[in-house]
Amino acid sequence: MFEMLIKRSLQSVLVIFIMSLLAFVGINLVGNPIYLLVAPNASPAEIAEASHALGLDLPVYAQYWRFLVNALHGDLGNSFVFNQPAISLIFERMPATLELASAALVLSFLIGVPLGMWAGLRPGSKVHKLAMGFSILGVTIPSFWLGLILILVFAVNLGWFPSGGRGPTTSLLGIQVSFLNLDGLRYLVLPAATLALHNIALVMRMTEAGTREVALQEYVKFARAKGVGAVRLMLRHVAPNVMIPIVTVMGLEFGQLIAFSLITETIFAWPGMGKLIVDSVLQLDRPVVVAYLMVVLVIFVLINFVVDILYLILDPRLRAKST
């Protein structure tokens, strides 16, 4: 097990290095932000001075080397637009994005897993057909369309939830969160539901397929023959075997929820990292864009690492192979 963790750690470091190189070079090949930062009537001398102050006059490889050295010390550069550390801008917006992604992940688990197991234990029934129809609908509906429909129905027509913003927050271990108070929770419901729909459908289909497969195993048939109840059968015999691939998918989906929440955040004016990265791309604020990509990359790598550990915990066969 220890050898596997060391191997995964080295692979993670290599992935971070390669992706940082690709991201930095790719971002620096797009446009020149200096013309957005200086006055329209700036002289060539003023433009050259500003480029030198920001390091934009250096070759791309020299800029990357300086970025890499500074990144090892926790410095991902200063924002061209806000003139403050890019990493601090990302961390200021990160709690809102993490809260939204976590709420969407919890909804995906609480709705997708029970419905998927219920449908899997009753193949061909009305419950199975209804669940599979909902999963197809959840996969095909675009999130931006769903968000607008939810705003129109539940915010404009019914007035049950706010149409945008984050609302009041409460401090939890020094981090501002919305779900600890009722008013803040009302602001969280619609964007979390919009972000979660695709994952609910995905988790439901995977759980249904896994449940149908496990239900055909001899130990499940034997448990049924002994008169084990439906709830105990699901929790004791079916769920542990079904959850192994679900854990992997939900771990990877959590990273995607963080990375691709920008559409939902834009629709609902949710003040997270997604809104910041959209504004930074439009303004060619390279340090913020690169810092965002690096933070999301590290999150993905950490999630994969945690998923590997959970695999070892859930599947004793893997523990036996790693020893």
Rank of each mutant, 00 (worst) to 15 (best):
H198Y: 15
I244Y: 05
V231P: 05
A239V: 08
G229P: 04
T248E: 08
D308R: 05
G74I: 04
F179P: 03
L37G: 04
S163M: 05
V69C: 06
S88V: 14
P123H: 02
K226P: 03
A269N: 14
I87T: 07
E208Y: 03
L312A: 14
L158C: 10
V220G: 04
F82E: 14
G74D: 06
G147M: 00
K226L: 04
P142V: 03
Y292K: 04
F82K: 14
L105I: 06
P33Q: 13
V189L: 12
P40K: 06
A23R: 12
D279E: 15
I246P: 00
V106K: 11
S20D: 09
D315E: 08
N304H: 09
G227H: 07
G165R: 04
V295W: 06
K226Q: 06
V247S: 13
Q256V: 14
P168Y: 11
G133K: 10
F2P: 05
P59Q: 11
D75S: 05
V214K: 01
V13S: 07
L197Y: 05
A23F: 13
R8G: 00
L310D: 01
L302H: 06
L314C: 09
S135F: 11
E46S: 10
F17A: 14
A155D: 07
V247R: 10
A131C: 10
M294G: 04
I263Y: 04
L158G: 08
A101N: 07
I313T: 08
I34Q: 04
N32F: 06
V288I: 04
A62N: 03
G112F: 01
T194C: 15
Q283A: 15
D308N: 09
L37E: 09
L105F: 07
G174E: 05
G167D: 10
L54Q: 07
H73W: 08
H52V: 14
D308M: 08
R186L: 14
N41I: 10
I175M: 11
P95D: 04
V60E: 09
F144P: 11
M243F: 11
A104K: 00
F260E: 06
S88T: 14
V278S: 05
Y311I: 02
S88W: 12
F109I: 15
R66S: 08
Y61A: 10
E213A: 08
F305M: 09
L262V: 15
S12D: 10
L21R: 05
F17M: 13
N70G: 06
D315N: 13
G124M: 05
F161N: 05
A223D: 07
W160N: 09
L293N: 08
P44E: 03
E218N: 12
R212W: 00
V156E: 12
I303S: 02
A103S: 07
M250E: 05
L152K: 15
V228K: 00
K126G: 14
T169R: 09
